[in-house]
Amino acid sequence: MVEEIKKNILQMIQKVPGVYSVLITDRDGVQVLKVNTDKAPEIPMRPGFLSTFALAVDQGGKLGLGKTKTLICSYPQYLIVQMNKLPLVVTFIANNSCNVGHILALEKQIEPTLSVLSLAVGETYM
C-alpha cells in the first residue's frame, strides 16, 4: 500500500516543475512518508527543521486570523511549503522559482492519501 501511495504522490509532484520532494511527518518531524526526486536536498528534511512548523502554527494562531493552514518559506535556493493537516504535516520542498500556487492546488489531491495515514498516526498517539 505504501508503494502505491508513494507512486501516486510522485506522479502528482512530477506535474509541478521544480518540486524536489514531499514529506509527510507528524508534528514532531518524525517521517511517516517521504517521496523524493533525484535533486532532493537533505537539509530541509531534518526533523529539527520540520518540527519548527508546529511552533510556527502555535504562534500563528495568536495573530487572531484563525487556524494556520499553510506556511510558505522562501529561501535563496529553496522554497518550502508546509500544510497543516494535524496530526500530520505535509512538507513540499521545491526550487525557489517554483509555482507556489500550483503546489497549494495539490492540497486537494493529496487529502485522500492523508486521511488513510492520519488514521494510522491517530491510533499511535492514543
Binding site: 509555482n99 507556489v100 500556487g101 497549494l104
Partner: peptide
C-alpha cells in the same frame, strides 16, 4: 489574476482563488 509565483492577487465573480496556481502553470 495571479502573480509569477502562481499566487492569487485578485478574484471576482464566479472564479476560485484556488485555481490561480493552475492558471499560471
Amino acid at each position: 489574476f495571479s502573480d509569477k509565483q502562481g499566487l492569487c492577487i485578485g478574484v471576482k465573480g464566479k472564479a476560485s482563488a484556488e485555481s490561480a496556481g493552475i492558471m499560471s502553470a
